Computed example of a mutant assay.
Amino acid sequence: MASIKRYPWISHFLGSPTGYVVHLQKGTVRHQGVGQAFWYRPVNSVLSEVPVDDQELPTLFHAITRDHQDVSVQANVTYRFIDPVAVSARLDFALQPAGPGAGPAPATGKEQVATIIGQLCQSHAIDQITTTTLAQALERGVSQLRTVLTEALRADTRLASTGIEILGVQVLAVRPESDVERALQTPVREQLQAEADRAVYERRAVAVERERTISENEMASQIELATRREHLVAQEGANARRDAEEKAAAGLIQAQAAAERQGINATAEANQIRLVGEAAAAREAATMEVYAGMEQATLLALALREAAGSLPSIGNLTITPDLLSGALAGLFQNPASRVVPAAGNATASGATGRSGI
């Protein structure tokens, strides 16, 4: 921004790199350009400083669509002054402040440019929006308005004659009223909420499916364990049964062996007894054959000897007359007829002798 140092009857001006100064003295241009520095007399001089850098002008206005809906348009216009001398002649960019008692200061050049461009933008935007519905304005209004406003402002003769060049127009938003906007957002919000609910339900369904899979796996594991336990119990039972059968078979074999052993022992014992009996019988038979040819007295003597060997010790012996008479009678009988009776008498005498003891 330019700076002015004031002295009595004279002042000094020092310009800025972005301000184009026009010094008029008695209606004649004495100095002009960017970054000027000069002395001047305030009583007969007029200074105007026109910015030559790019200017940004935000604007906001309302329009009615074809279906009678109010929309607000927010735009931003970029412009610059390409002919500062013409601008200073058409618009007020004076640097001289108003003196005391001069009333309110008039509108500055920037305010005038903002009013001109804002009215032009609003006029052309309204012409465009009135031909579209609210849905079309919200859907394609930004791009359409940007094109329409850029072409209209660049082709405007007043701006061109004033020395204003439009560099660009940006339409930032085309929005309906708040109630209408909320109503328009409701279906989308409901759809998004439905999508969110569907995602939640799908997530829950996936969780339930996973839990079911886990439960099925646990149940399958339990069934597998029960099956294996059943096989183990069956195998243990089969092993116990096989063990019992083996023990029973071994016991049977042992019993059969014991029975066979007892049979063999009994047979051997019976054979032994039979052989002993046969031997004893043969000996008795041989003895009887020997005794058959012996005399009665000899047999009596042998019987007495055998009886004496088996009898206990005799302290005294009593011989009765009957025993003596019988013995004497036997001595005088025939040898052939006294063999058998002699044995009988010997037995009787032996018995009598034992009884008399």
Rank of each mutant, 00 (worst) to 15 (best):
L311F: 15
P84I: 01
Q128H: 11
G163N: 03
G237N: 12
Q296E: 09
T147I: 05
G15T: 06
W39E: 03
G101Y: 02
Q272E: 05
S178Y: 06
D243M: 03
Q69W: 00
F61R: 00
W39T: 00
S325Q: 14
Q25I: 05
V174I: 12
Q144L: 11
V43H: 14
L324N: 09
E230H: 06
G141V: 00
L47G: 06
S325N: 14
E289P: 07
T347E: 14
L47D: 09
S72K: 10
L328A: 10
R175W: 14
H12E: 13
G15D: 14
A249T: 01
L153H: 00
A348N: 15
W39A: 02
T65G: 00
A327V: 14
F38C: 05
L167A: 06
E165C: 12
L324V: 09
T298D: 12
N76E: 12
R182Q: 15
G315V: 02
E218F: 01
A63E: 03
D70R: 10
A285C: 07
N265Y: 11
I166S: 06
D127H: 09
P187G: 04
A346H: 06
A270F: 15
L138F: 09
D197G: 08
K110S: 11
E224M: 07
R6M: 10
A98K: 12
P97M: 01
I166C: 07
N44H: 09
K110V: 14
T352L: 15
T147D: 15
F38Y: 05
T130R: 03
A102L: 00
A196F: 05
A292F: 05
A336G: 09
A346Q: 07
V340R: 10
E56N: 10
G163P: 11
G237L: 12
L138V: 11
P321R: 10
V169L: 04
D70I: 06
Q170T: 02
Q74A: 14
M288V: 02
R210W: 12
R354Y: 14
G141I: 02
L311E: 15
R140E: 13
L225R: 13
S337W: 05
V71D: 10
N76A: 01
R154M: 06
T347P: 08
Q96E: 11
H31P: 10
I214C: 07
P51L: 01
N44F: 10
L275N: 15
L252V: 15
E181Y: 11
Y20Q: 02
Q262R: 09
R189E: 12
M294R: 11
R41T: 12
A194M: 07
E278Y: 11
P51Q: 02
D179L: 08
E306S: 00
G277P: 04
S161K: 06
F332P: 00
G15L: 09
D322R: 04
E195L: 08
A348T: 14
A336I: 05
Q235P: 01
F13K: 08
D322V: 05
A98Q: 13
D197M: 05
V77G: 07
R198D: 13
